[in-house]
Design a protein around this nucleic acid. Sequence first.
DNA 1: GTCTGGACTGAGACTCAGTCTCAACTAACA
DNA 2: TGTTAGTTGAGACTGAGTCTCAGTCCAGAC
Lengths: 168, 168
Amino acid sequence: MAHLIKEIGRFQEFLQKQGLKLTGERTALLREIFSTHYHFEADELLFKMKEKGAKISRATVYRTLELLVKSGMVRRVHLGEDHYHYEHVTGNSHHDHLICTTCGGVIEFNDPILEERQHEICAKKKFTPTFHNLQILGVCDSCTKKGEQPDAPDRVQMIQTASLRLRK
Amino acid sequence: MAHLIKEIGRFQEFLQKQGLKLTGERTALLREIFSTHYHFEADELLFKMKEKGAKISRATVYRTLELLVKSGMVRRVHLGEDHYHYEHVTGNSHHDHLICTTCGGVIEFNDPILEERQHEICAKKKFTPTFHNLQILGVCDSCTKKGEQPDAPDRVQMIQTASLRLRK
DNA sequence: GTCTGGACTGAGACTCAGTCTCAACTAACA
DNA sequence: TGTTAGTTGAGACTGAGTCTCAGTCCAGAC
């Protein structure tokens, strides 16, 4: 778990700069996030902590996630439409998501050409970008092989949330 | 308002196919959406209807929006992170959004090169896309001219919701 | 050692968008 | 007129996320 020491150090450094403290609860959450989860929800994290016997409240989970997002170590993403998901940031790799509306699976990708084109569009519109968010919804290879049909495009907006919920 | 007759006709046709009826409430909502709103929230629409003296309940607003989305005449988009926004669809033009985190303004764009690249990425990953969603957050030209500074990229995720709320 | 101020915590109340339920209503049609 | 099925409003409900507040912790000051 040598890499977790590094992550904890980074978080502590960030906290100290703000006059904040690295507490037992914060460390426990950090460990949980970086050792097992990848994409997760706040309440799922809370549940996992309780399962492990750690007494950590909802409020602390949300407060700590906020700090982790501010520190840049965790990203807020939305894979469905209805509420936030989180993912920890390892290294610095920005990426976007392909989301299978059938199985709820998430495929990450990072495409420099796409990023470059976005910058060109912003330049043309005299818009200074700071952050972007791209989700492509559809059906993944393995679901296609199982014979799943992609939903009609008009319908995907209505069903995507339901599909993602199935995954829990 | 000749174009509204066309819209109402399209909606009625959709409803009839499902054995549903075009009621006064549904017509009133359709008129409101297509005559004045562009990007709007469900509760904002409800408020506008009440302001005009139309007695329409929250449940009916949500139910009608769901039908309109299913019919393809209205799209659900998320401009901020916290809840849905809706936009009516005129013609068939798909587009994405540049969202100013300072003034909450929304600029639409449609870029075939970007779309094409997304399809290439999906093909490479053997993913069958049905729908996508791209928001680029940043600072628009007029805010930049007013001297607004873009927020540090790490922070944008935390502030975007708040900024959009200011716009109401 | 103990004081003190400020950060931290858990419990639970609260908010707010969105959903659901249910009884009353309405339109279509035999 | 009776039947059937879709529609509606009111308000209860849900669930993610936020806020409040009293109590706890802890590092530095005395």
